[in-house]
Write a protein that binds this DNA or RNA. Structure first.
Lengths: 179, 179
DNA sequence: GTCAGTGCAAATAATTTGCAGTCTT
DNA sequence: AAGACTGCAAATTATTTGCACTGAC
């Protein structure tokens, strides 16, 4: 893929403040990550730590591309394929989680605590929400036709604050134009 | 895309019996679909009805490609792009719904009743489950940062019966080989 | 008759893979 | 030293688009 960065130059990594995770928590997660790599016999490479840390720092549930965009600034030799491979591997290992948006793009989350996602159906933005009381289903649980439920994934789909405001403004503009 | 059908010849549409919706229900849905098209000023074309009906008949939450595969047998002139366009349009109109799997592939559902999905993380299969008591959140609901929740989407992720059985068999084979 | 909808082919987007090196263990 | 991992480029897979034509209204 010819990606946005190579095409248009480096895009500044512009995480909003409230979407950056706190330093100490990130440090704790990274330490646990190293430990987990060693335990499982995964090699603890510079790239793996970098990808994991970028994900841990960013609570906006970034795509592979935006993880790459952030890291490429520092690690100029980093390859897109490596980021994909690392994300896939870490997901297989259960060290990170994949979150699906309305569109088909894959996004990732380093937060393994049980929690829910608000998904904006306009901008595809994802934000976390602490455990809802809804999520109480004793797991693992046996469903119909031999289905073994391991996880209850709750997504709250709607429209985020900024899209709602933007739409209100547009609506206003349109009604002005009509009059 | 050079798709499976063009590459390997026609794949038989092999919906399992329990994944086919009952005739009368399908007929009712199609009738309502026609009515909805007319109400909204969407042209009621052969292709649209065919795509909608194929989706209504098939409770396996097919991808665009498998809808195309089924229809291509009868409508030899049908184009892949048309199927994509129709599915997208119907989703925009809220006449069908999009379901996301663990992988990024889009799948669709003609069932608009509130219900949950069991998603198999091994084969990506999706099956319906009638409304869980969990889904009781009064909507629309105002969340944090101005988020307006419109829908609560609950996916029960786990392993389906046939994958579990297949895995058990493999496990058995492996332990035999080891001994 | 009009124009939304379709078919075809080509373009774009997203992800994966083959292979030749490189770096962790 | 062994082989898991990376970088690069090319391949694959999934989806979208441009344009000329056709059929629903």
């Amino acid at each position: 893929m010819v990606n946005a960065i190579d095409k248009h130059g480096i895009r500044p990594p512009q995480a909003k403040r409230h979407l950056q995770r706190n330093r100490q928590e990130v440090a704790r997660w990274c330490a646990r990550f190293e430990e987990q790599c060693r335990t499982r016999g995964l090699r603890f490479t510079t790239q793996r730590l970098a990808v994991y840390r970028a994900l841990a720092q960013d609570a906006s549930h970034p795509t592979a591309e935006s993880v790459y965009a952030r890291l490429k600034l520092q690690m100029t030799s980093l390859s897109f394929a490596t980021v994909y491979r690392i994300l896939e591997r870490l997901e297989d290992e259960g060290l990170i989680r994949r979150v699906s948006t309305a569109k088909g793009v894959r996004r990732f989350d380093a937060n393994l605590e049980p929690h829910q996602h608000f998904v904006c159906r306009l901008c595809n933005g994802i934000t976390d929400h602490a455990e809802l009381p809804h999520a109480q289903l004793p797991l693992p649980w046996r469903g119909p036709r031999g289905f073994t439920a391991e996880e209850l994934e709750i997504r709250i789909v709607g429209i985020c604050g900024s899209c709602r405001r933007a739409r209100a403004k547009r609506g206003l503009a349109r009604s002005r134009a009509a009059s």
